[in-house]
């Protein structure tokens, strides 16, 4: 009987923790967003974060997209060749990349790279009193540390995904033309015939949501970290894990909203 009660109590504690964290996170996000319309806005921090997220993530996102596009072309060729449907490969590559792989792969790469770095940086500032120091120097830490990063993440990720889309399609093109002997003009024509504006724009909209979620997780876990180096390490791990899960969950929801008919 006691074991059952303990189990129910543990479930209750976990549920309460979940609700508490969700509430705190929502409040954190809304407070940060409210600073967007309340001056001052820290443009230097914003541009710094934009370069960190958008520019320095380019190599990893570009390589990931390039190879992913190539892998899709190879894998779909293996399957489609059995049904003599190789002509559909260009369409498969472009739709997979623009609708899903571009935003998701770029998002996961940025979550690992930027979300972790943000949580570590802000977490270190928390445990070394730098955030308290900001308050004593007439500076709201949310306005200074969180709001510019959220905006930068929301803007930078769609730009990265646009590049990832192009490179992903290029990866598929290179593999199809060089390795699978497709005609280059025919492949390009099939690509443009298959893709619609909505495929790209919804992918970019997804990327904006992912960018917001990744930076929100990085900032939230860093800002609320406690207990020295170990606390910062835990915050970093939690930021990446939470961002990745939220990213995939929101990807499903957005796909369901935009593409399921």
């Amino acid at each position: 009987m006691n074991a059952v009660l303990d189990f129910i109590a543990a479930l209750g504690r976990a549920a309460l923790n979940l609700v508490r964290t969700a509430g705190a996170l929502t409040l954190f996000g809304l407070t940060a967003l409210s600073h967007l319309v309340r001056p001052p806005f820290y443009w230097r921090i914003f541009f710094g974060a934009l370069i960190e997220i958008g520019f320095f993530s380019l190599p990893v996102v570009a390589l990931t997209a390039l190879f992913s596009g190539g892998v899709i072309a190879l894998q779909s060729y293996t399957g489609f060749a059995q049904y003599h449907a190789q002509g559909a490969i260009a369409g498969i590559v472009v739709l997979a990349v623009t609708r899903e792989l571009g935003p998701v792969m770029a998002g996961l790469m940025v979550a690992g790279r930027v979300g972790a770095a943000m949580a570590a940086e802000i977490g270190t500032m928390r445990v070394t009193d730098q955030i308290d120091a900001l308050t004593t120097l007439s500076t709201n830490p949310m306005k200074y540390l969180v709001t510019p990063r959220l905006l930068a993440g929301t803007i930078a990720l769609p730009c990265l995904v646009l590049v990832a889309d192009m490179l992903g399609v290029m990866g598929g093109f290179i593999v199809s033309v060089v390795k699978l002997d497709f005609s280059a003009p025919a492949y390009i024509a099939a690509t443009f015939a298959a893709v619609k504006t909505i495929d790209v724009t919804v992918g970019l909209a997804k990327a904006a949501v992912f960018g917001f979620l990744i930076t929100l997780m990085g900032c939230y876990h860093g800002y609320t970290s406690r207990g020295g180096a170990q606390g910062v390490g835990s915050a970093t791990t939690a930021a990446v894990v939470a961002a990745s899960i939220l990213l995939l969950a929101s990807d499903y929801l957005l796909t369901d909203v935009f593409f399921s008919q």
Binding site: E121, M125, Q130
Partner: peptide, 26 residues
């Protein structure tokens, strides 16, 4: 709070900024 200056135990200097930017931050 603007009328209060604080010296933290470990300095709490902003390591992303130079020394003069730290001093002039407030």
């Amino acid at each position: 709070i603007e009328t209060i200056g604080m010296l933290f135990q470990n300095g709490a200097l902003f390591d992303s900024l130079s020394v003069w930017e730290n001093v002039a931050f407030g």
